[in-house]
Write a protein that binds this DNA or RNA. Structure first.
Lengths: 228, 228, 228, 228
DNA sequence: GATGAATGAGCTTTCATTCAT
DNA sequence: AATGAATGAAAGCTCATTCAT
């Protein structure tokens, strides 16, 4: 039957793919190893030949998924040196990933932190590497003078990823659509301009008042000059 | 033995407290009703006299917890009308809650979204009401002219709460300390000023240039006036 | 609250009535003592003050029900001396009872036989007494010469009650209607006439054939005898 | 231990057999899956590998039992074309089944109707098919002119099966013996002749008397022939 | 390398019944 | 007479995991 379906690598890939599907669809806890095996077309024992435990299977699914996230990043970022553009691209790509793989993203968000011994795990390293792309962009921006040099970079990173995670959660659960361009715009706008209106107004008001005052002064002076 | 330990309300409170502890310590799935009952000192059947199911028990634990979050908010916010100060206070209180109850916060974050039928549940309503405090502060700020009137309010809300959630996750898992004042400052600073350095400089540069120009003009004029 | 609702007899009647309803609606197994108590408005312990066990409660419900079946029988049967009419009336009354109390009848049929120690119980006595009415009618019919005197009376009784039970079971489960007059007619017709058709013809034909065959045989034999 | 006791089919058969025994002995509700498993010599989980639920196990036990009822019917009925003989055979076989398997019959009668979703279940189909054998015999009898053509066939079917069920219930519960030939005679006699004593009996008496007389004659003649 | 039967501990939930107050 | 809190045993069912073949 399925005993001749291919090499060891193929079998592993097959199981991983199936596990990815089932975990994504129903969640980790709600999926049993028996279901995974049945969907692959093998018996439970076979799955355990390739994976030590259910938890390891999940870990490898998530690892594989994280690794796929990096594909194409290099090319996409190539040549985008401008700080703003680079951040925009990273945020947009992140949103696109979520729009295209809502189930996997939900799985990741749900199981990632629950992960026993998450702190320091290979999975965490991958996550770090992923978010580090944004951190690097930020640091480059600081170095280039485009960003404030006192930016709390990791906090900023978490506000971006955490904010997006919260914001699109309803979509990941099947509600509504995801307009990734619009969201990218809004996030960037928030970050770039901040939320306040005061400073600008102050600058502007000060600027205008002073200008007006000086202009009036100048006028008066010029009149005096003219009359004298 | 424990048969005469108190009134119905006390028993309910006792079970809730115990469940809160166990769920917080080991998580929902990893806690069994038998453990809860044993810790209270009763048999499982007794717990089911007061709570319909394990899920309901979790729900009530979380509900009670959410309700406690609102305590003192009114007083604290009283008199804090300034937009900036109000937001700062909300963020600071949120962080303080997490610093003081890391286990419960971790439980909440872990189980909240997994909650079946979360969409529209009473728990979600409480969460909404909680985050709505910040939304209202933002809207008041917009109305008062202290904030940009094109702010994407819900996105902003999610960036604040989601950002904090991500940022302090290690602490919730037992790593490090939480300097809530410092974090509050950083979050507020990010929001108020944005991350860019460009615009301000522009305003400032323009302002200073113009001022300088006019000042010079004035000076020159006054000199002329003085000399004449 | 309900502590002052009445005398002991009232309380007993109340509980019996409630149990009758619940057992009828959902069945014995599917009804819990807690439900009975709740519906009455008392606590479980109170029910046990009046009834030793759940089984006893069922027994008393069924007993009460059986006793009610006899009400009016005397009057109804009064003056109906004709065998056929009497049987007809008994069957019709039985069907009417089922049409009017399908739930209770279903309960009875379901729980009656399962009854532990049914054999010889007071309940069985009541059932006996009930079906005995028909037996007596049959015996009276035999005595009067209206019925065959070699009738297997108990078998006949069981064919009537058992047949009706089977036949109307779908109705007791909520399917269709019960046309008791028509059914009564059919049952009586079957019993009175038997199932055979043209009995006379058959018998006659058989009789004649057999007679003829034997006669021929006899003739031939006699011829042989005669010739030898 | 028992891990190597045989093939899947054997294991299934083993469990079915055990369940059949236990269900028959103590009833469905009173039997636990743990008991079934223990009697087979495996753990509960093993039973659930082969059967989805306790209910399914019961269903399969009953199904298998029903199917066995059909075995041999074809052969037995072969060549028995006469209406009376055919009905007699069906009734007799039914009684023999009950005499030989009282426990299973009791189980069937007890659990059959309680069966949730009985209406339309595969089990009901089997029951239908079983009782249909009698219905067909009746209809054939009608077609052949041996039975009244206005017979209420299903009612008749139910009076036969329901009557027998009631009549032999004490035996199924362990009381007394079952004289199946005698009962068959009585049932057939009731059906054929009805309960009345009118003209038919005369025909019969005449028929039987005459037949007996002729038979005796025939015998005597044959003896004579033999001696000659 | 794959099978697949078997494990065994654990889970949530139910309920008739008891008894001190 | 009534309360109502507590019991305790058992039930059906699930599942990750193992191991002889």
């Amino acid at each position: 039957m399925s005993s001749t379906r291919g090499t060891k690598e193929q079998r592993v890939a097959e199981i991983l793919q199936t596990a990815r599907e089932l975990f994504s669809e129903r969640g980790y806890e709600a999926t049993s190893m028996a279901e995974v095996a049945a969907r692959v077309g093998v018996v439970e024992g076979t799955v355990y030949k390739y994976f030590e435990s259910k938890r390891e299977l999940l870990l490898l699914v998530l690892t594989q998924w994280y690794e796929s996230l990096f594909e194409g990043y290099e090319q996409d970022l190539e040549g985008v040196r401008d700080t703003h553009a680079r951040m925009r691209l990273l945020i947009w790509r992140h949103l696109r990933t979520m729009r295209d793989n809502p189930d996997l993203c939900r799985l990741t968000f749900n199981e990632f932190r629950a992960e026993q011994g998450y702190h320091g795990s290979p999975l965490q390293k991958l996550n770090r590497a992923y978010t580090e792309l944004l951190v690097e962009a930020l640091q480059a921006g600081i170095a280039a003078g485009a960003l404030r040099d006192d930016l709390p970079v990791t906090l900023l990173r978490d506000m971006i990823f955490g904010g997006i995670e919260h914001y699109i959660w309803p979509y990941l659960c099947g509600h509504g659509e995801l307009e990734i361009d619009s969201i990218t715009d809004q996030v960037c706008s928030l970050l770039w301009q901040g939320i306040g209106k005061a400073d600008e107004q102050n600058y502007q008001r000060n600027f205008e008042q002073e200008t007006r005052r000086l202009s009036e002064l100048a006028e008066r002076l010029e009149q005096k000059l003219g009359t004298s």
